[in-house]
Amino acid sequence: MANLQTLSKCEDLLTGGHRACAGCTGSNILRQIMLTAGPDTVVGGATGCMEVVTTIFPYTAWKTPFIHSAFENCAATISGVETGFRALKQAGQLPVEREKMNFIAFGGDGGTYDIGLQSLSGAMERGHNMLYVCYDNEAYMNTGIQRSGATPFGAHTSTAPAGKVKQGKEQHRKDLTKIMVAHNIPFVATATPFHWKDLAAKVEKALAADGPAFLNILMPCTVGWGFDPAIGMELCKQAVEANFWPLFEVENGHYKMSKKPKEDRTPIVEWLKPQVRFKHLFKPGNEAILEEIQRWVDDEFTKVQTLCELG
């Protein structure tokens, strides 16, 4: 089990000097994952913030092999890499001898919930030994904060903006985590970069799983959400305490809460308030939207909780 002492001794496999925004929690997610994964790892990135900021030619922030191909095909690409590994190992033609290697694909919510869903679903169904990580910042941040299938109800985005007659996104977010559970893969979990110990343990489990694993990681985006760059981690903590982002894992189909939820959850408005994307919801007349968000959060949480109680 990871602790700070051991993690602090691991080599940082994502170097500093990349071009992520000040206060970005995404690069932090990648660093934490890579500390646990270690150097015998091949990483694939879908087109998106993290790919763009870490690989501007002629520089790369990656100290492990890294491949980017396109927006929607990261899972398929890494499934090819993983198969290449197995085939070359079988043929005795690996460039460096390794019994096992890690294959990690990552994509933002746009590249995962939306355009990359088919590719992801296929790769999971085929049972590749790979971990897919979604860094979910709840909109297409790289292209300019457009609404995605992960954008929460009521959030302002550049394609579903709050205006004189519309109040942001008119649909609730898609439950991708459950969609991944429905693939009957060995390991699915939610995480945040604030809960580092939980995240490290989940990465460990995911990489040890015999087959595909999926992590959905909340990634507060200072630019897209509109908050003080200093409070990204605080928003992760609050998202969990408000039951907006319950931390749970599903191992071989069995749900388990990773963190015992507080008896009295934080009202969702506390999480919405520091974020500019929800600012319009606090204007008079939008009370019903806030109520609907609270209702939805509570309902969704109850569903997960029930599944966890069933085990």
Binding site: I56, W62, P65, F66, I67, G84, R98
Partner: peptide, 14 residues
Amino acid sequence: SLLDVENPITVGPL
């Protein structure tokens, strides 16, 4: 080779 973890390369950069 993308599998040469001793000589890591980045493929398909921006």
